[in-house]
Each structure stands twice: as C-alpha cells, then as structure tokens.
C-alpha cells in the first residue's frame, strides 16, 4: 500500500496531518502500538522539517507486510553539512519555528532513534531527501 502527501513549507496549521493519516492506517492494520509511535514520531519530525525549512515537499509512505518505508523529499535550501545537522542541539530554525515549539536541533537525531534504517541526502540550494525504514517486529 502506497500513500502520498504533498507538504507546503510554512504551513504550520497542517503540519502533522500526513503523519496523522499514517497513524490511522497503521492502527487499522494492527501494527503494534510501540512501533506505531516510533513511526509516527519519525514521520512527524520529518514532516515538520519540511514545513520549517523547505518551500514544499512530498511524503511517500510504502506500507509492506513486515515494514514501512518512508521517503520525504523537498525543494529547499538543503543541508550543507549533514553530520553537523545530526548532532543534538544543532539547528538553523527561524524564530517562527521556535515559537511553534520546535527548532531545538532534536529532529534528525530523533528520527534516527526511532527508525531501523535512515538515509539522508541533500544538495545545498536544491533540497533534501530523507528515507527511512521501520520493521514491524516487536522491540527487544
């Protein structure tokens, strides 16, 4: 099952609506609740990143029998130094983003914590692509 969503940069009133829809779908197919939480937290962090930093982007979520694969690609400023962006506390968020309760430099590290496979690629001046996989196995 593949689900696609378009995400607009700066649209904070709708940020999270795509992740919310995925949560509803995963509940319907009886994915364990702790796995659902990990997936939707990672999706929401990635969705908020697009709203906070990019002009626009797309979320494509492929739900397979044993795993979920998400690809979030955006048109935006990109990330010049991904290693630096992965460090907790590093952020380039605007004051507006901080007013919304984000921009603490926790997003990418938190996506990594909640996913089994994570790939981030970025071209400065063009955009960023975040792909991750979460397996539906019980956590040890």
């Amino acid at each position: 099952m593949e689900l696609k969503f378009h995400i607009m940069g700066g649209d904070f009133s709708n940020a999270g609506s795509a992740s919310s829809e995925i949560k509803r779908v995963l509940k319907q197919i009886n994915v364990p609740s702790d796995i659902i939480k990990s997936i939707v937290v990672a999706l929401y962090e990635a969705e908020v990143n697009i709203v906070a930093h990019a002009y626009e982007g797309d979320m494509v979520v492929d739900v397979q029998p044993d795993r979920l694969i998400a690809v979030l690609s955006d048109k935006g400023p990109g990330i010049p130094d991904i290693e630096l962006a992965m460090q907790e506390g590093y952020s380039t968020a605007s004051p507006k983003v901080r007013e919304m309760g984000f921009g603490a430099g926790m997003g990418l590290p938190n996506i990594q914590k909640n996913t089994d496979i994570l790939n981030i690629s970025s071209t400065p001046g063009e955009g960023t692509k975040v792909s991750f996989t979460v397996f539906f196995k019980p956590k040890s």
Binding site: F12, A15, G16, S20, K23, S33, K37, M100, G101
Partner: peptide, 15 residues
C-alpha cells in the same frame, strides 16, 4: 504553555 495546534499534534504522535 504552548497553546497552538502543534502541541496537539505532538501529543497525538507521542501518545
């Protein structure tokens, strides 16, 4: 004290 829509979204995702 954050009374905005993202507080509710965050609560939703974080159970």
């Amino acid at each position: 004290g954050l009374a905005n829509i993202q507080a509710v979204r965050t609560a939703e995702m974080s159970d």
